[in-house]
């Protein structure tokens, strides 16, 4: 999971257990392992929440954010991070008619989220509070074998220049 040419797939297992916790109003927040956007590359991780039924405005939504992490190439990389990040929840249907749920976002270099991290994981992330509703999750095969697949594809400005 560490080197992936800019594509990382995060397998979240036991999703029914997470949903049960959420239904019982227990907060569900998870971080992915760190992954590199290339070699050399930026170290990033994903943060996923299942918002509680009692949450204001974002109840029963999956929130998804990207965080920068301290990585082994940081001193050789341009900062702030600049590039394009495509976040997807993968449709695991059999056959050709797959409809992933996707959003594409452009890094905003003026934000703290894209500065070189000064601690293990930058507390500031960038992404979507209302990435996808739990209702929408039921409409296709987004859960298979009790597993949710989250994909993150990163194209950095470094990639574009090389």
């Amino acid at each position: 999971a560490q080197q992936c040419n800019g594509i990382y797939i995060w397998k979240i297992e036991n999703f029914s257990g997470l949903q049960k916790a959420q239904e019982e109003e227990r907060p569900v927040v998870m971080h992915s392992p760190g992954f590199y956007t290339g070699k050399p590359g930026y170290k990033l991780c994903l943060r996923l929440h299942i918002q509680l039924p009692s949450a204001q405005r974002c109840a029963n939504y999956i929130s998804l954010f990207v965080h920068t992490m301290q990585g082994e190439y940081d001193s050789h990389l341009p900062w702030p991070f600049q590039g394009t990040i495509r976040l997807s929840i993968l449709d695991q249907s059999e056959g050709p008619e797959r409809h992933n749920h996707e959003e594409v976002m452009e890094a905003k270099p003026e934000l703290l989220a894209f500065q070189r991290p000064t601690i293990h994981r930058n507390p500031k992330g960038f992404g979507y509070v209302t990435f996808m509703s739990l209702q929408h999750l039921k409409q296709r095969t987004f859960i298979k074998d009790d597993t949710l697949l989250v994909r993150c594809e990163v194209l950095t400005r470094l990639d574009l220049n090389s």
Binding site: S63, F65, E103, K108, A113, P123, G125, F126, T130
Partner: peptide, 12 residues
């Protein structure tokens, strides 16, 4: 309308 990405802070 498409959702808008935002900065969001999370501390353990």
């Amino acid at each position: 309308f498409p959702p808008v990405p935002t900065e969001d802070e999370y501390m353990d």
